[in-house]
Design a binder for these strands. Structure first.
Length: 586
RNA sequence: GCGCCCGUAGCUCAGCUGGAUAGAGUACUUGGCUACGAACUAAGGUGUCGGAGGUUCGAAUCCUUCCGGGCGCGCCA
């Protein structure tokens, strides 16, 4: 509807230009929007006011010219000039009836568009380090990423969903060392756990499995293990040096093969848990991309070489630096440390280079807001390699603060004190969690009151929407029990019988869905869809409460049943995008 | 100190690329089921849109500057 109106206005405008009534340097595209107030019609445009200055005419006069030039259309039954120069459009009932028919023709495709057609997008989200279970902060990125990916697909983009697995690097070594030490403890060694190790209970679990399956394969006397290792912080030493020393000892004492086994067991156990969590949460991926693979196949080296080729790498204090300041970053960044190890940043440059090499037009990364300072340097690397930095779009998700008993829950992966995503899901349910996460703008800080979510879970807005959907199914079940059936064909032909205000409102809401979905996709804002579905549910509920659907009059009955079934389809389509189920009864 | 995000009703938040009287949910009060599910609905009031300037036909929205909160500023990831 909206695009049809835009076309009409643009046609009128170009006609005015062609016949010389108006002289404009540029033809702006028409801005049409839904009216807030019903008395202003269905749609309005501010075109006349926008053009007034350029056309050197007053807005209302210009509006009249536009209306005179407006092509005839079955869509519009009435127009008016209002206020400072708005043009209001009243849409015909027949046009709304057409929309209802379209819902059934297009079914699960109703609302989809092609604005993103031809664009290949690689979306990366969550990508949490596999050093522990996912917590509630990751959950937000997961829900937001999955919903945005669906949104883009619905808008015609070709989307590839990816999880970047940080399976290389020091954090993974610390994890392996943590598991090994717990394992040694289970073997009977008296281990003092390093202050910088991962202390969560899940480390014990992995160690226990290792011990059960491999017995003493990896055992070494603790005295040997600590030989030459710098003291830990509580003993007056340095916790970083201490843990690095232990990692070094693990490598030496176990040898490459056995060390890899411990490392691999830890990675597999944790990554397996993450995969399971996300799968159950309805967050899917097309690919799990390994950071280590970028090391193994030389992609990282190639990336560095490429930057050396453009003269953007220099050596200082034994390290290799990328001159990111030449591309807008605040300071230059190290890519290879003086000890020869590549930084996380180096593999990230390689990863993004690899994404482009795989042929994607756009990369959309969803990061926690604490990584925002990272954006300029990655963009800088893309620029240096001759790529358009805007091919990378980073969407930042603010952390969700958890409140329990009125107090903020402090969370830290290292200390193992956090509320896991799994716990949250068990407490509030997958549907409620998914919906709650995308109900707010991603860049908005969000307070998640656990007690409230648990004790009043039935008041969660998701049930409001699901209930509206289930109610429609309930009506259809009632119909059947009364020995009647729904004639969709007759219902579509009888839409003119739906003259109640509630019916009009519901039709308007249904007709709004396609433009809403498109806007939400373009702005990467699934919360718009969440709010829309709540509005739609409200329309359905008020209609339900004020009118009876299963009435004697057969034509009217079918018209009403057709209308609510169109709404049912929109509920299903919208909830599916958000990853929330649409139960037929609850 | 520098950079990014945020500040809207008592609380949690919307407000679509500047638009017509700034809206929901929640909380509080009072109504609505012998009718398709009351997890619903109807009515009731609340705002210096953090403050102050500026841009213009028009600002919660854009610009500047303060105030307040969050985050980031490593040869960590």
């Amino acid at each position: 509807m909206k695009t049809q109106l835009q076309q009409l206005i643009e046609a009128a405008l170009s006609q005015l230009c062609n016949d010389g009534t108006l002289q404009l340097e540029t033809l702006p595209s028409a801005l049409v929007e839904r009216t807030r107030d019903r008395t202003h019609g269905d749609f309005a445009t501010n075109m006349a006011m926008v053009l007034a200055k350029q056309a050197k005419r007053n807005p209302r006069e210009l509006a009249q010219l536009l209306l005179d030039a407006l092509p005839e259309s079955e869509l519009v039954v009435k127009t008016e000039i209002a206020g400072p120069g708005f043009i209001n459009f009243f849409v015909s009932d027949a046009a709304y009836a057409t929309v209802i028919a379209q819902v059934f023709e297009q079914s699960s495709s109703y609302g989809k568009s092609q604005v993103g057609a031809g664009q290949k997008v690689l979306m990366e989200y969550v990508s949490a380090n596999p050093t522990g279970p996912l917590h509630v902060g990751h959950g937000r990125g997961a829900a937001y990423g999955a919903a945005t990916a669906s949104l883009l697909k619905a808008a015609g983009y070709q989307v590839h969903r990816e999880y970047y697995v940080n399976d290389a690097g020091r954090q993974m070594d610390i994890l392996a060392a943590s598991v090994w030490l717990r394992y040694l403890d289970l073997c009977g060694e008296e281990v003092t756990f390093p202050s910088n190790g991962y202390q969560g209970d899940y480390i014990w679990d992995i160690a226990a499995t290792l011990h059960r399956e491999q017995q003493d394969t990896f055992r070494h006397p603790i005295a040997t293990v600590l030989e030459g290792v710098p003291a830990d912080e509580p003993d007056g030493g340095d916790k970083e040096l201490h843990i690095d020393g232990i990692i070094e000892q693990a490598r030496t004492l176990l040898g490459t093969a056995l060390y890899k086994q411990v490392h691999g067991a830890a990675l597999e156990a944790i990554l397996g848990g993450i995969r399971q969590d996300l799968l159950e949460f309805g967050v899917e991926y097309d690919e799990w991309f390994s950071e280590q693979s970028l090391m193994d196949d030389q992609t990282v080296d190639q990336a560095i070489e490429k930057l050396q080729g453009t003269g953007d790498i220099y050596e200082e204090k034994g390290a290799l630096w990328f001159r990111s300041t030449a591309y807008g970053d605040e300071k230059d960044r190290v890519v290879v440390r003086d000890n020869g190890l590549k930084t996380y940043f180096a593999s990230d440059i390689a990863y993004h280079m690899n994404k482009l090499q795989r042929g994607y037009d756009k990369m959309i990364d969803i990061w926690g807001a604490d990584h925002h300072g990272y954006v300029p340097r990655v963009r800088a690397a893309l620029s240096a390699m001759g790529e358009e930095p805007d091919t990378l779009e980073v969407l930042l998700v603010q952390f969700a603060s958890l409140f329990r008993g009125g107090e903020k829950v402090q969370m830290s992966t290292r200390s193992g004190s956090f509320v896991t995503l799994r716990e949250l899901r068990q407490e509030v349910g997958d549907d409620a969690a998914r919906f709650f996460y995308v109900l707010r703008k991603s860049e908005q800080h969000m307070d998640f009151d656990l007690d409230l979510a648990v004790s009043q879970s039935s008041e969660n807005p998701v049930y409001y929407i699901q209930y509206a959907h289930a109610r429609i199914h309930s009506v259809m079940r009632q119909l059947q029990e009364k020995g009647m059936s729904w004639d969709q064909e007759e219902g579509l032909n009888s839409q003119n019988l739906l003259t109640e205000e509630h019916e009009k409102s519901l039709m308007v809401a249904i007709s709004r869905y396609p433009e809403l979905l498109e806007g939400a996709a373009l702005q990467r804002e699934p919360h718009q869809l969440a709010h829309y579905l709540r509005d739609l549910a409200h329309e359905l509920h008020t209609y339900y409460n004020s009118h009876h659907f299963i009435v004697e009059d057969q034509a009217l009955r079918n018209a009403r049943l057709t209308l609510i079934n169109a709404a049912r389809q929109v509920f299903v389509n919208g909830l599916t995008v958000l990853g929330v189920s649409a139960p037929e009864e609850m």
